[in-house]
Design a protein around this nucleic acid. Structure first.
Lengths: 363, 363
DNA sequence: TTGTACGCGTTATCAC
DNA sequence: GTGATAACGCGTACAA
C-alpha cells in the first residue's frame, strides 16, 4: 500500500509559501496575510491534507485524547455513560480511548500503563477495584488529568464526580408511603463496598426519617439477577403478615430478579409487592411491569465529567473551532493546572408500573 | 507539575550504554550482549520508563491503535460487540479508539477524518449509513486496514464479517412448527435497508421451505419498541381464526414491544401467542417471559473481526510478548498487505419461554 | 509578516 | 555487538 502521507511541506510547496506559514494558518496562532492564507487553504483542500496527530502530539505534548477506564461496556448503564462521555468529548474535539477493565484490577493497572505510553491528556476512571494509589502515581508520573467518575475511589487524591443516592431514596420512600406501604424491605449490594454502602445508607436514612423500621427485611449480594431471585424467593416464604409489601433494590438487575423470584411463588408485582429498582437503563421501561427506579442522572454526570476533566486539562480556553475548514482544531499549549471540585449529583425517582397501592392499604 | 518524561536517553545514561542499545533491548530487533541487556532492563525498571507511543508511531508509521466506528454504544447489542472487540484487541496489544456515530452519517464521516489524523492502523466499521465510498477513499488515503463488521456496506470494496440470518430463521420456523404453529407472522425492519432485507428474506425463505404462507402477516418499521407495540395491537384486532399464533421479529426490542402491545389487548405470551426475537442481548433472559431468539454469535464475530483486521495490518507475526518486563510490546514493521475474505457466521436459535405450544395445536 | 532551523522521542542505517 | 546520526511531521523561537 504505502499511501504516502501528505505533509505540511507538500502544502507549503503547493501554496508557494514556507511551512511555518502553513502551520500558522492551520493553528491560527499567528497572523498571516489574507493572500497567503487563502493560498494555503486552497492547497490544503486540493491535497486533502490532514495533520498528523502523532507529530503534533509529540511536539505539543498534548494529544487531545482521553482515556475512559470503565468496568464493563456491555452493561447498559456503563454503555449509556460511555455514550454521553463520548459525545461530550467529541464535541470538544477530544477522542476517547476505550479501556474496558472487565472488572479486573489487573487489567485496570495494565490499562493505566497503556494510557501512559499513549500520552493521553486525561483519564476518566470508573473503577471496579481499589486503584487509588495507582491513580495518584499515574498522575504524578504523567501529569495527565485524572477524574474519578460514578464510583468514589478510596485513597485517591483527585476529584470525583458522582451521585448522591439520598434524594432518590427519599423520594422512593415517600412514594411508597403514599401508596400505603408500611413494611419496606431492601435488597442491597455486598457490604463493605463503598458504592453499595452509600446506597444502602441513603435508603436506611430515608426509612429512618419516615419512622419506619429499616432493619427487618434486608437481603444483600452482588448486583445481579440471582441476588434478586434469592431475595424474592426468601420473601415469598414469609408468612403474609410478616412479609414486606414493598422492596427497594440498589441495582436494576436485582429488581428484575426479585420480581421473578417472588412471582415464581405466586407473589405478583405490583399487586402484592411493589418494587423500586436503581439505575434506570433503557430496559426499565421495556420490562413488564415497567420498573419504578431511583434514577441516576447519567447525562449530567457524563457531560459534567467531560467538562471538568477538560478544565483540568485546560483546554477550556476556546470552543476550538477549526480555523481552516477541513482541518481538525489546533491544540493550545497547556498552561497552569486548575483544580476541580468534587461534584455530587442528585438521584431522582422515576415512577412506573412496578409500584402500586399496598395490598394492606385502606386507601 | 510538568512531570518530565523519562526518555530512552535517560535510560541509556543510567545504564551507561548508548540509546541504540536501549532501543535494541526494548524492541528485541537485534542482538545485545547479556550484560548490557541486563543493565538496560534494570535502568528501565528503576526509572519506570515507558516508551512514548507518539514518537514510536511517528517513526514506525504504526500506532497499534484501531478505531471502532459503531452506531450506538448504549445499545446492548453493540455494547456486547464492543466488549468482545476490545478484549480481543487488547489481548493482541492493540488499543481501541471509540467512535460512536450515533447513527449519524455526518458523524461517521467526521470520525473517519479523526481516525485519519490519528494514524490508526485499522478501522472496524459497523455503519449506520452508506459510507462505502468514503471507506474506500479512507483506505486509499491512509492505507489503513478497513473491515466492515456486522452490517454489510454497499459499494465498499473491503472485506466484511457478518452473520447469516438463515440458519437461525430455519431453526426458529422448525421450532414453531414442532410446537404446532401454522400461522406465523413477521415483524421486520424498514424495507430497503440491507440488513433488514437480509433478515426478512431469510425468514421468508425458511417459511417458504416449510410450505407455510409467508405473505399474510407482515408488519414493518424501525427496530424499536414502538414498531413492536403497533404490530402487537394490530395483531390483537384480528379475529381469532385470522390471527397468527406465532410471530418472528427481526429485532429484540420489537419483540418486547410486540409482547406488550398484544397483552394490552388480552393476548398473552406464550399461551396465545409465541414470539421469537432477534439479537440475544443479556436482557433476553431477564425479560418475562424469557425471550426465545434468533441469536447472533457476537463473541465469534468480534474475535474473528479483530483477528482478520490484525491479519490485514500484518501484525499477526508473533504473539508479541514484551521482550522487557514492564515495557509494552514492540511493533514490527509492516510488510505486504494480506487479503482477508468475507466471513459469514451462522445465527442460531436460543429457546426460552416466549414460545410454547400453539393454542390451536392438537399436541 | 515571512522563512530557517531546531527539537519533541523513537527506530533504523550506517560505520566501527 | 555497539555507538553516533538521520529521519518521522509538526510547531515555534529566532532571524530577516
Amino acid at each position: 500500500m504505502a499511501a504516502v502521507q501528505v505533509t505540511v511541506r507538500d502544502v507549503a510547496k503547493k501554496a508557494e509559501v514556507s511551512i511555518s506559514t502553513v502551520s500558522r494558518v492551520l493553528t491560527g496562532n499567528a497572523r498571516v496575510s489574507p493572500e497567503l492564507r487563502q493560498r494555503v487553504i486552497e492547497a490544503v483542500e486540493e491535497l486533502g491534507y490532514r495533520p498528523n496527530a502523532l507529530a503534533r502530539g509529540l511536539r505539543m505534548r498534548r494529544t487531545a485524547v482521553i482515556g475512559l477506564l470503565i468496568p464493563d461496556i456491555s452493561n447498559p448503564f456503563f454503555g449509556q455513560l460511555a455514550r454521553v462521555v463520548e459525545d461530550a468529548a467529541n464535541n470538544r474535539g477530544y477522542a476517547i480511548l476505550l479501556c474496558n477493565s472487565q472488572n479486573s484490577r489487573r487489567r485496570e493497572i495494565q490499562y493505566l500503563d497503556l494510557l501512559r505510553t499513549q500520552q493521553v491528556d486525561g483519564v476518566l476512571v470508573v473503577t471496579s477495584g481499589a486503584v487509588g494509589d495507582q491513580l495518584d502515581e499515574f498522575f504524578k508520573l504523567t501529569g495527565a488529568a485524572v477524574l474519578a467518575l460514578d464510583r468514589r475511589i478510596p485513597q485517591f487524591g483527585g476529584p470525583w464526580i458522582g451521585v448522591d443516592p439520598y434524594p432518590g431514596a427519599k423520594e422512593a420512600v415517600r412514594h411508597l408511603l403514599e401508596l400505603g406501604h408500611r413494611r419496606i424491605g431492601v435488597v442491597r449490594g455486598v457490604e463493605g463496598s463503598v458504592s453499595s454502602d452509600e446506597r444502602y445508607n441513603a435508603i436506611a436514612r430515608a426509612l429512618d426519617e419516615s419512622g419506619l423500621p429499616q432493619e427487618r427485611w434486608i437481603w444483600s449480594g452482588e448486583y445481579t439477577l440471582e441476588t434478586g431471585v434469592e431475595a424474592g424467593v426468601a420473601l415469598a416464604q414469609l408468612p403474609d403478615e410478616e412479609r414486606p409489601t414493598a422492596v427497594i433494590t440498589t441495582s436494576e438487575f436485582s429488581a428484575y430478579g426479585l420480581i421473578e423470584g417472588a412471582s415464581r411463588h405466586g407473589i405478583s408485582v405490583p399487586e402484592q409487592l411493589s418494587v423500586v429498582g436503581y439505575d434506570n437503563t433503557a430496559f426499565a421501561e421495556v420490562f413488564r411491569p415497567a420498573l419504578t427506579v431511583i434514577a441516576q442522572p447519567i447525562e449530567e454526570m457524563g457531560t459534567l465529567a467531560v467538562d471538568s476533566i477538560l478544565r483540568l486539562i485546560n483546554a477550556e480556553q476556546e470552543p476550538q473551532l477549526p480555523p481552516v475548514a477541513p482541518v481538525a482544531g489546533a491544540l493550545q499549549p497547556r498552561d497552569e493546572v486548575e483544580t476541580v471540585e468534587d461534584a455530587v449529583l442528585p438521584t431522582f425517582l422515576v415512577k412506573r408500573s412496578s409500584t402500586a397501592v399496598s395490598p394492606h392499604s385502606e386507601l
